[in-house]
Design a protein around this nucleic acid. Structure first.
Length: 984
RNA sequence: GCCCGGGUGGCGAAAUGGUUAACCGCGUUGGACUCAAAAUCCAAUGGUCGCAAGGCCUUGAGGGUUCGACUCCCUCCCUGGGCACCA
């Protein structure tokens, strides 16, 4: 008898179930459900004219799998869709096709809705939101007014990023490499009065609350970097009365003028040899009368402030600046007068716009000081070697001697074949330089130098092997340039008798001492020598060595203070607070994050609900008058001024406060404001009396799982966190973090491994794939391609494997059902087929929870392969379990199979099958037998074998004996249920 | 320059200290069915030497730790992404 199997027709099946799911509102989330809640959020799309790109269905499929799985696990799942419909691309597209943005947006969302419904995503469609609808943006405006009333929305004249093509201002985050994120035009900078949101007030909390949320570590780090917390100090430098007589007419007392700087390294204060003001610094103007070279300064300020950040960055390699001649500042630690410069390597927008420059310990200051010949004073000695208890202190120094005549360096050679620098301790009554000169003369006889100058200081820990003591020393290195080869008679101590003077190239020297430095005793010599060679090259004496191999490097780490008055000898970290205190400075925390610029001079956005009155100033629109509707405009194109300004009907209004003539704000809000709170609306999407019902939000929030593209790691997430904290402070929500768990979607690349883009011609259209295969096949293939958060290329052939699997799955399930109906025997308790099923139950559930969809699918493929090979089909109940496993991944087929089994329910509310741990345990095990870590045999043994039995069996293996070759085992290692390793 | 990922067959990838690394799938080769093709099914498929049995080699390169390393540590190379004068 031939069984007539139902034909698998995905088009029909998918259309049928998609319609039923929608019509019967199967996935409506019930506020009053007794089940535990689970809120799943996915980035609501920006509905572009191009329709879904591959990234959308990839992320949405993962969420849908998870949502359906959670429903089967007994959760009441809130899972929704909405549209981030305001924004520039829609407006630009509308301009291009000569239509109204509203019309374009409607067509786009309609197309997006059709597409996502085609995939069968299990959304609660009654909760759909659209940021461009007045019902939604009424509350965006309300939120803005609340922020304003708390002083968190304010206007300031600011340098803004202006996109000449889009005719609008962009947030810093929307400028990529100096170009507009959207259209790629080169950004200009303009001064303009703008609305800002004071996110900086929340910087500390935005940083602190990153602890304890389940987000990818890299995303947390990027948020931390963006917030950019620095602990430091601000210190005032008094301006001294001019020393010179450049401008004798200037009688203003200058003692009350001071420059406040911010530094993270107050420990280096004694090394501050000049100050730098940013070109924007207000003090520059105040000093006009005192500055001797005002014209030059003014010209520099003019030039640099008109440079955009982009242009500053492009010329960043070369430092520029002008000294304010005739004005000096007083270093509060050394009381020394130091020059003041204006230079654009200091940013006006960070800290106080002024710095103390410490060229010895800051890369940028070093570069600048070298270029302009400003003194470099070392105040931190690098610590080298390994610290030991009971060290004795003995300071000393060493010399690197260069002979220009032979282009070689002098070192001391010893019978042990190693080389050392000439070095020694300082004796009473000597300073460091004298001591080192004396030691060199005694040890090498050399004394006739053109120059002998200090190179670098280190604080070193070492072991004196001759005296068997641990020592620490402040060690100073000098570079001596030989004038002549004249030598005095050497005066060597007993232990130095074998020492010889040798001349070598740097390469030879480094090769010789690098080999025996096991205690790190000579780390400082290594630093000294490299630095001395770099100096010799720089001074023009050493012409043979390669400047790239020996580049002068400043030390910017922490260490032991030197040349720092009473603080000398202290640990630089510990000295920070004390130095700040001693000069009357204050410890202070600084952030990189800037306030959020939200004004946009475009049409297609939320009108800013503010009124400008000539009498009352800025007055918010009364909440009862919200929403301020976006008017329909004939000409909405930007023309350098906001489009709304051209509409007299919109712009002219009576002041709500005084009743006089006033004007509405003509700008619209950045779309990131729209999307910074949409997740709070889904729990109560149709509320007309409030932004949301507190109870409903308290019930559903926070979001349990948010799946989002990795491109949103900074802006959207930071803004959403900010708004959440604000609403918390206002008493609207009781949590402070909106998203408990976050997962990122890896890109789907083109077949060529490149990002999909129209210009590369490697774009794959989801509509076409679904038409050619089916929604279920496409869902499964998107998940099967690779790990969810990895970028993986789309392989047009690979999808065939998934299609074959689903067809086989269909045939197997129907075949098994019909065979069982004929009364044929089915897989019994304990049979291999039954074991296969239970292993699959375990694996599928675990992998879905861990977002390992590729291995979940692979596991089901393995299971199907085994089931097809099994002699008997699964019994009907077990077949039902198998169908349930498929359901989250390919819901249309699973639901159809479920229905063919005679069920009338929806699988989403059927319980996920439980696996029986007893069925998963194997009765026999395969144990690896290794000899010296190489597997030589495998044994099949009964489960629960003891260590002794296993070892005995392993040693009895002929292969093992052959591999041992007669050697007696030294040791036998047993790893339970896994292997025996015989070490011979 | 700095900070994160990543490098495994012809391809997408599994395995994150333990059963001779490569599961699952794509592709390829051979076979069955067919007049033929598609579809489907069966078998083979890391490299290398060998008629074979079998041996040797293999997770970017080199070192190290370990009884045992794709997995942990160090150095380097390549690659994707982020930040980039933030004092």
């Amino acid at each position: 008898m031939r069984v007539l199997m139902p034909h698998y027709d995905p088009k029909e099946i998918e259309a049928k179930w998609n319609k039923k799911w929608l019509d019967e509102k199967v996935f409506a989330a019930h506020d009053d459900s007794k089940k535990p809640k689970y809120y799943q959020l996915e980035t609501f799309p920006y509905p572009s004219a191009a329709g879904l790109h591959m990234g959308h269905p990839k992320g949405y499929t993962a969420e849908d799998i998870h949502a359906r799985y959670m429903r089967m696990r007994g959760y009441e799942v809130l899972y929704t869709m909405g549209w981030d419909a305001f924004g520039l691309p829609t407006e630009n597209y509308a301009i291009k096709v000569g239509k109204n943005p509203k019309e374009v947006a409607l067509a786009n969302t309609t197309n997006f809705r059709r597409q996502v419904q085609m995939f069968g995503f299990s959304y609660d469609w009654d909760r759909e939101v659209d940021t461009s609808s007045p019902e939604y943006y009424k509350w965006t405006q309300w939120l803005f007014i609340r922020l304003y009333k708390k002083g968190l929305a304010y206007r300031k004249d600011a340098r803004v990023n202006w996109c000449p093509k889009d005719q609008t201002v962009l947030a810093n985050e929307q400028v990529i490499d100096g170009k507009c994120e959207r259209c790629g035009s080169e950004i200009e900078e303009r001064m303009m009065e703008q609305w800002f949101l004071k996110i900086t007030d929340y910087a500390d909390r935005l940083l602190a609350d990153l602890k304890g949320i389940d987000w990818p570590a890299a995303t947390i780090k990027r948020q931390e970097d963006w917030i950019g917390k620095s602990e430091g100090a601000s210190i005032k430098f008094q301006i001294a009365n001019p020393k010179s007589e450049i401008n004798p007419k200037d009688q203003t007392p200058s003692s009350d003028l001071s420059i406040e700087i911010f530094t993270t390294r107050p420990d280096t204060l004694f090394g501050a040899t000049y100050l730098v003001l940013a070109p924007e610094h207000s003090l520059i103007g105040q000093l006009k009368e005192k500055v001797g070279n005002w014209d030059e300064v003014a010209k520099y300020v003019e030039e640099t402030t008109h440079k955009t950040d982009r242009m500053r960055q492009e010329t960043a390699k070369e430092k520029t600046g002008v000294e304010l001649k005739g004005v000096m500042a007083v270093n509060p630690a050394t009381k020394e007068e130091i020059p003041i410069w204006v230079a654009d390597y200091v940013l006006g927008s960070y800290g106080t716009g002024a710095i103390m420059a410490v060229p010895a310990h800051d890369e940028r200051d070093f570069e600048f000081a070298k270029k302009f010949g400003i003194p470099i004073r070392e105040v931190v000695a690098q610590e080298t070697g390994i610290k030991h208890d009971g060290e004795e202190r003995r300071d000393g120094g060493c010399g690197v001697i260069f002979d220009p005549a032979t282009q070689k360096y002098a070192v001391a050679t010893h019978p042990d074949g190693l080389v050392r620098l000439f070095a020694g301790g300082v004796e009473d009554g000597e300073n460091m330089k004298e001591g080192v000169l004396r030691e060199i003369a005694e040890e090498s006889g050399l004394y006739d130098f053109v120059s002998f100058e200090k190179v670098r200081t280190c604080f070193t820990h070492y072991h004196n092997s001759r005296k068997q003591v641990y020592r620490s020393a402040l060690a100073t290195c000098f570079l001596g340039i030989l004038a002549s080869g004249k030598q005095k008679e050497r005066k060597l101590e007993e232990h130095e008798k074998a020492m010889e003077l040798a001349w070598m190239t740097p390469k030879e020297i480094l090769e010789n001492w690098n080999t025996h430095n096991n205690e790190h005793d000579l780390d400082h010599w290594f630093i000294f020598f490299r630095e001395a060679v770099a100096r010799a090259i720089e001074l023009g004496y050493d012409k043979a060595s390669n400047a790239d191999d020996f580049r002068a490097e400043i030390f910017s780490g922490t260490g032991v203070l030197v040349n720092s008055g009473e603080f000398s000898g202290m640990d630089s970290e510990k000295a920070k607070a004390e130095i700040v205190k001693s000069v009357g400075g204050t410890m202070r925390t600084q952030y990189k994050i800037r306030d959020w610029s939200v004004s946009r001079q475009r049409y297609w956005g939320v009108p800013i609900p503010m009124i400008h009155c000539s009498k009352c100033g800025i007055v918010p629109v009364p909440e009862s008058d919200l929403p301020v509707l976006l008017p329909d405009l004939e000409n909405y194109r930007p023309q350098g001024m906001p489009p709304l300004a051209s509409s007299a009907a919109f712009i002219n209004v009576k002041c709500p406060q005084c009743g006089g003539d006033a004007k509405r704000d003509a700008e619209t809000l950045d779309t990131f404001v729209d999307s910074s709170w949409y997740f709070l609306r889904y729990p109560d999407p149709h509320n007309d009396a409030a932004i949301f019902d507190k109870q409903k939000v308290a019930h559903w929030m926070p979001v349990d799982l948010y799946v989002i593209g990795a491109e949103h790691t900074v802006m959207h997430l930071l803004y959403s966190r900010f708004i959440t904290k604000f609403l918390h402070d206002e008493g609207y929500v009781q949590f402070t973090e909106p998203f408990k768990k976050l997962r990122h979607i890896g890109l789907i690349m083109g077949a060529d491994g490149q990002k999909m883009s129209k210009s590369k011609g490697n774009v794959v259209n989801p509509d076409e794939i679904v038409a050619e295969f089916s929604a279920d096949v496409m869902r499964m293939y998107l998940m099967f391609l690779g790990p969810f958060d990895d970028a993986t290329p789309w392989d047009a052939k690979g999808i065939l494997g998934v299609e074959r699997f689903l067809k086989r799955f269909w045939n197997y399930c129907n075949g098994a059902r019909e065979k069982a109906a004929t009364g044929a025997p089915t897989a019994a308790e304990g049979s291999p087929a039954k074991q296969t099923l239970h292993r699959a139950i375990k694996r599928t559930g675990e992998d879905i929870e861990a977002f390992k969809f590729n291995t979940a699918i692979s596991g089901l493929m393995i299971a199907l392969n085994e089931l097809e090979a099994a002699p008997e089909p699964l019994a009907p109940g077990d077949g039902a379990s198998l169908v349930k496993l498929l359901h989250p991944l390919a819901p249309h087929m699973a639901q159809e199979l479920w229905s063919l089994m005679g069920n009338t329910t929806y699988l989403d509310f059927e319980p996920w099958p439980e696996y029986d741990p007893k069925l998963i345990v194997q009765s026999t095990l395969r144990i690896a037998v290794q000899v010296n870590g190489k597997t030589r045999d495998t044994l099949t043994v009964a489960a629960g074998i003891t260590e002794d039995e296993a070892k005995k069996a392993a040693l009895g293996s002929a292969k093992v004996q052959a591999a041992l070759g007669g050697q007696a085992p030294k040791r036998v290692i047993w790893v339970e249920n896994k292997l025996v390793n015989i070490v011979a």
